[in-house]
Design a protein around this nucleic acid. Structure first.
Lengths: 149, 149
DNA sequence: CCTGAAAGGCCTGCCGG
DNA sequence: CCGGCAGGCCTTTCAGG
């Protein structure tokens, strides 16, 4: 963040750690009045610094115990790259990053079973005309740690 | 998830999309009373289905425009694997996954500049006695999409 | 950009089914 | 496991400095 000063930084940090913290408590933690905090949060939201709020759920607990990274490369490198668009409707994809290196994209996906992963890979290849290279996640020591903002 | 029925599924889905939704609104959306929703949310929280709530922030807006995936492999494969522990204090690491394949871990990191990435790689190698292979993210079409719970 | 106050809505705990 | 109610707290807005 370029133009973000200490108070905003502090508010963002608190909200990243607890997205349901009340404005009253944010005020106590920062030494501001409730309305001042509220105002700053609104500005942070509409400036796009805060994109939204989300419950963070345990993927296993919601029936998606299998995570994998799929590197993706087009069969025809000269074709226009609409891969991200073509894949945007696939719900198993949690993230899609365009990357430097041998492959073009890295996808992070979550599925219930190896069979579903196999099926997903087939759909990805057909949908986006890509070759895939899959790295299965065995365990996740930590994930989605709050950035040191 | 195994023992999660429709109502819980629905509540989790709503909270993943908007982590600040009020119990009253959750009630309206699900057809339950406020207290019934509140009860279910509390159970979901203490069963660990909902791990917490977080503001989702734009990494660029908070001064971390450079994202990378770092694959990590120990110099000495016979040494006991305490890599995840050794790296747990490094704040640039947002996620650490143990994976199947040629390398042992995939880290997702965020930094401000290429220079910081270089510095980080040096620290990782020294801290955990690992070889690294880095894939720089060029752009991110989407990320942290709510799982289809 | 902040504070303070006031109205309205929400949270939360406690019963009764 | 659900609904309803009541007191207290939080949110939201609006003057005013």
């Amino acid at each position: 963040m370029s133009a973000m000063e200490e108070l905003d930084r502090q508010i963002v940090d608190l909200l990243v750690r607890d997205g349901r913290m009340s404005y009253t408590d944010l005020g106590k933690a920062t030494g501001l009045s409730t309305s001042a905090v509220h105002q700053r949060v609104r500005r942070l939201e509409q400036r796009g610094v805060i994109r939204g709020y989300a419950a963070v759920v345990d993927p296993e607990a919601v029936g998606l115990p299998l995570t994998a990274f799929i590197s993706v490369k087009p069969f025809d490198p000269s074709a226009p790259d609409d891969i991200a668009d073509r894949l945007s409707g696939v719900p198993e994809i949690e993230a899609c990053h365009s990357v430097a290196g041998d492959e073009n994209y890295i996808l992070k996906v979550r599925v219930a079973t190896p069979l579903e992963l196999e099926d997903l890979l087939g759909r990805l290849r057909a949908l986006a005309h890509v070759a895939t290279r899959t790295t299965v996640v065995l365990s996740t020591p930590y994930e989605a740690r709050p950035p040191r903002v």
